[in-house]
Design a protein around this nucleic acid. Sequence first.
RNA 1: GGGAGUUUAGCUCAGCUGGGAGAGCGUCUGCCUUACAAGCAGGAUGUCACAGGUUCGAGCCCUGUAACUCCCACCA
Length: 880
Amino acid sequence: MEDKKNIAKTYDPAEFEDRLYNTWVEKGYFHAEVNPDKKPYTIVIPPPNVTGQLHMGHALDETLQDILIRYKRMQGYEALWVPGTDHAGIATQIKVEENLRVNEGLTRYDLGREKFLEKVWDWKKQYGDRIITQLKKIGSSCDWDRERFTMDEGCSKAVREVFVNLYNKGLIYQGSRIINWCPHCITALSDAEVEHTEQAGHFWHIKYPVKNSDDFVVIATTRPETLLGDTAVAVNPEDERYKDIIGKTLILPLVGREIPVIADEYVDKEFGTGCVKITPAHDPNDFEVGKRHNLEQIKVMNDDATINSYGGKYEGMDRYEARKAIVKDLEELGLLVKVEDHSHNVGQCYRCGTTVEPIISKQWFVKMKPLAGPAIEAVKNGDTQFVPERFSKTYMNWMEGVFDWCISRQLWWGHRIPAFYCDECGETTVSKEDITVCPKCGGHVHQDEDVLDTWFSSALWPFSTLGWPDKTPELDYFYPTSTLVTAYDIIFFWVARMIFSGLEHTGQVPFKRVFMHGLVRDSQGRKMSKSLGNGIDPLEIIDKYGADALRFTLATGNAPGNDMRFYIERVEAGRNFANKIWNASRFTMMNLEIDENKLPPVDELRLEDKWIISKYNKVVKNVTDNLDKFELGIALANLYDFIWESFCDWYIELVKPRLFDKNDPSGKTAQYVLTYVLSNTMKLLHPFMPFITEEIWQHLPHEGESIVISRFPVYDEALVFEDEEKAMGLIMDAISAVRNRRAEMNVPPSKKAKVIIVTGENDTFTKGAVFFEKLASASEVEIRSDRSGINPNAVNIVVPSAEIFLPLDELVDKEAELKRLNGEKKKLEGEIKRVEGKLSNQGFVSKAPQKVVDEERAKGVKYKEMLEKVLESIRAMETL
RNA sequence: GGGAGUUUAGCUCAGCUGGGAGAGCGUCUGCCUUACAAGCAGGAUGUCACAGGUUCGAGCCCUGUAACUCCCACCA
């Protein structure tokens, strides 16, 4: 927009988006620091996976947080996007690890730890910069200091601090339990990392012979290969069928081990055969049963789910091969009674999809009950609020039923567990500092090979990134943070864990609000994913339509917390909106002779000026209120309507005659009003569409160096003009009605006609007369207070407060006109009947609010007036 | 098995604490009106899933039903 005379006719974001972003960064507008003169506003969002590819979900995160940040900054807050980048490999680790494995065929066992990490660091370096560049394209205003925290420095310190503190309080323990084991990734998984899917399987019914007898019991199982690890068969103590057999000894088929029949409440009499084989080392329920009955735990599988030496002849086989072989052998022995089809839930690794094997294993756990209590309380009493509120139920549900959290992972990418084992005395030492000798016996120690669950360090994100455990000024100022912006699918992994960690380690909630959004789906409602190949690259969208258009799409058209389908048509709508703004601005600038932005004195303002200013002012209120409620979509829709309808379709058109008439001094007033309303509207829109608003604002008369650091408009009671709004409403209705009639009669705009307005609102319509010429194709406008002498054959239009005649005699078909008038009559009569019905209802009149009743009465009066006019026209026409 | 969500125009979705059903896209008609055809003006299209209930009044609140979605859960 360098030259006002030569502004591009079409909006082209490529022209200015990069340039503006670079300027903002250079000027340091995004920088946030401890500033006692201002109030902090801090936002936490999930960092993008450092996989080099920005996906639509993150574009959504980023857009929403950026809208809030920009808004708050314009309100004078010191607004911070929680710094740090690396997330300590946190969410990213998964992708990194997966990628290396898939692309380069690496596993934990192929490379040593050092080599492995080297690879990862290379990889991260390569993609780290790229992701930042990509974020800029969204228009992100975060001051992203990616060097600030890395896995080996700040974050590690916090992680160790937390681990040791929890350990010392007895909230972290090491124990053997059944955990979810991924035989492909060769690591333990937390409950949250397991996805359950319904799968068709079989139910094998197998005979277990009773020792020294011809008797047998039949058990039913879905996993016959675990038979190798059975150490008992259980029945329900109440089950009459099996009363006699309790305490007897069975011979485990194929293995020959003697196992007892035990009684346990856990067994459901109705399910299967009522006899359950108990495999304490390979099933969580069986594990518990085993503990109650002191059963031996026999682990029959290796880490990669092949059968180990306890499996006898099946040793070395994969679990599914072993299953086949075992079933076959049982069949040959006549011990297989039957096979039923059975569908059941199978747990799968959410990373690689491999069926998870429950395995007994020694792992580190966090004791959850003591941590969950305060975390539940914090949400109950509102210290942390979910937006929308319903997500607090999801949170509560999980928190109240939470099990201990398995935090050790047998990966090499992550924070290594700070536990050291003595090679001499076996003592376990947990330490913030690395140690080399055992504090107890002085023997040599080695550190635990395992690393922590990524979410263990993610849980510390809101405060570890601010310098905790040190008492930094940043921590003091920015913590607790204001708002977390994230998708609902991450409540358990991340949100819940940040809340209890924050409370435990800092004594405060990590954030006051959790603003949850939904998932971005493709146009068919499917989750976008790499494997489906239905992902849409935000960068391609930006290249084609601009960042503002994409942001518009992501911020509008859906309610908070609901999923959104991504349609390219919606991006086009956003782009069209930008183009509309562009051209409205172009029009304004082409007609601008002023070089300051100020509101003219009220007494110089015309009717339409007051109308648009009043409308604008109400938009300020609406946008502010809705942004404060996190109703970003409503705020933006309101701006959209105001800009497109009120400002472009009406105000600009209304003001054209004044602007174009060089002899009309009020043209200047219009220029001021155009400038004032447009530039302030750009401020309102800036959080949503930062680039186009800055570009336009810069080229309008303005104060200050950038819209980014300008003040957000404030609602001003003095700028509400109710009377003018009403008056303009009447005029606009009348104009619309004339257009409507003309369209119905197929009168082209080029055919002008005289407009005669009969009204009691003489003053209003006199002011509005000029508008009819331009907007209602009027050749001239006559305003009068009675209809005497008007050709009864003229086209007649009845609107509230006025009756309008168009002397288009030659175009009028008397029959059709009468028909239309009678239709009009019928409609009005219907309305009157409805209103009177309501008003004659005692219940309504006495119980409804006075305001509603009054409104109904006013409507009744209005409709009756209009009916009178219509009747009069009908009479006039009939007497022709 | 538990919990949550959805059901509104042809499509995708809004509809805030109950007071005459909305948007975008699509569609139809007419317009290149000197900011914009990525546009302007006008039109059509809804038993607000179903059945009860509360209320003067229900898309909205209550109860139940149906269909679809998602999350959680250790029934072998």
